[in-house]
Amino acid sequence: MKILIYSTKDFEIPFLEKANSDVYHIKYISERLTSKTAILALGFDAISIFSADDASSKVLELLYDFGVKYITLRSAGYDNIHIKTAKKLGIKVAHTPEYSPNAIAEHAVALLLALNRKLIISQQQVTHYNFSLSNLVGFDLHNKTVGVIGTGRIGKVIAKIMNGFGCKIIAHDINEDQGFTKQYDIEYLTLSDLCKQSDIIMLSVPLNSETHYMIDADLILLMKRDVYIINIARGAVVNTSEIVEALKWNRIAAYGSDVYEYEDNVFFYDRSETKPNDKLLLQLIDLPNVLITPHQAFATKEALTNIAETTFYNITCWQQNKTPANELTIELVR
């Protein structure tokens, strides 16, 4: 089986090489999958894509014409691939659902701590020998109310960590895990009630039609003015322009995010010489109460190992005419 890996990052290759162990013929390319680069998959049986790749219906139809039979995602989320079209075309698709919830959750907490304790401002001051504390006052996390929106694998780890800080945890999810609530004394609330009560809001939901722009101006009006919002879900879970306006007018205190709704062709690349023409991103970066990281939450050795191993687990299952546990197109393909 010949495999083309799109959107390859240099730091991924050693992990992928180790997981492959010279079993399959692999070609690595840095290009994103788009309608223009789909032709590069000609002659390959399988491709691997990442979260920024475009596997829309149009692209999938091109891949089908080029002979691609299998797609394995090096990500848990799969909002970038049109699963229904893949099913109709008979292209089997699998993802990497459990590569490391700890990596993502820990990064969410890192964003919160860095914002709250003004670590970026502090470091900038110290490099100029300014040791004043006037701009560096934060707050104790102990006894604060943390609202976790989305209590899947990542949301559960976030709740566990924040419970360890002595926070009160409230949550919102379409699927309530009652066993989990008892273990950590968590209360499930409506989305509006969670927004009203939370000192800190953590977003860890998948992006779909229900969660697109879940956090908008109307919900922001319900929140406390000193609320901190941390987004390690997907960029379009929040209405970014309305978040920016709320920050400008001190309607919310701070925003930390590892994702951005227009991150395609920006995040994962060095754009220092060719800065993106994105006024909204520029506004976010320039705000003093915002911390943006370039979708790096998954970038730990453990997570990269799991991603690589799951990638080749999926491929090996298909090679052996078996169904991987992570297959997303199982219903119509069997």
Rank of each mutant, 00 (worst) to 15 (best):
I158V: 15
L282F: 03
K160N: 10
F268M: 03
C167D: 03
K248E: 13
M202E: 12
I104P: 09
T181G: 10
I315R: 06
T300F: 02
P294L: 04
V148S: 07
V237F: 02
L291Y: 10
A171I: 08
G77L: 05
T85P: 01
V137N: 13
G90R: 03
M1C: 07
V266T: 14
S35D: 14
I292C: 01
L136N: 09
L281I: 06
L222C: 10
I120S: 13
L221Y: 07
E176V: 12
Y28S: 04
P14K: 04
F268K: 01
A38C: 09
S257M: 07
S100M: 11
I91D: 09
A299M: 13
A110R: 13
A308G: 12
S7Y: 01
T305I: 08
Q296W: 00
L281V: 10
T311P: 12
S257E: 06
E106C: 03
D53E: 07
Q183Y: 06
A52I: 12
K2N: 15
Y28G: 03
I243P: 02
F66I: 00
L291Q: 07
I5V: 14
R153Q: 13
I121P: 11
I169S: 07
E210W: 00
V157E: 12
R32I: 07
L119R: 08
I83R: 09
Y269I: 11
I5C: 12
N231Q: 11
W318I: 06
D22Q: 13
S7P: 08
Y188H: 08
A114M: 15
I39A: 13
K168A: 06
Q123M: 11
S272L: 09
N326W: 02
G150S: 10
F66N: 00
S100I: 09
I215E: 00
I121S: 11
S21G: 07
A46T: 12
L16Y: 14
A103N: 05
E273G: 10
S48W: 02
D264G: 10
L62H: 12
A159S: 14
Q197D: 05
N314C: 04
Y64E: 08
V157P: 07
P294C: 03
R225S: 13
I230L: 05
N306I: 08
D185E: 07
D22I: 04
S132I: 00
L133T: 12
G147K: 08
S257I: 10
F165C: 10
Y99L: 06
D264F: 11
V227K: 05
R334I: 09
V205H: 03
S100T: 11
L221N: 15
D177N: 14
V23T: 15
Q178D: 14
G43M: 05
H25Q: 15
H212T: 15
P206M: 04
I161Y: 05
K58Q: 14
P97Q: 06
A94D: 03
L189Y: 02
I83H: 05
F312L: 13
G90D: 05
Q183T: 11
H295Q: 00
E61F: 05
H128G: 01
T310S: 09
P324H: 02
L111Y: 03
Q178W: 02
M202V: 07
F11E: 14
R153F: 08
Q320N: 15
N250M: 04
G43K: 06
G138M: 02
Q296D: 00
D54L: 01
K84Y: 05
S257K: 07
P288T: 00
K301S: 13
H95W: 01
C317Y: 01
G138W: 06
A253E: 14
M214K: 01
V148N: 11
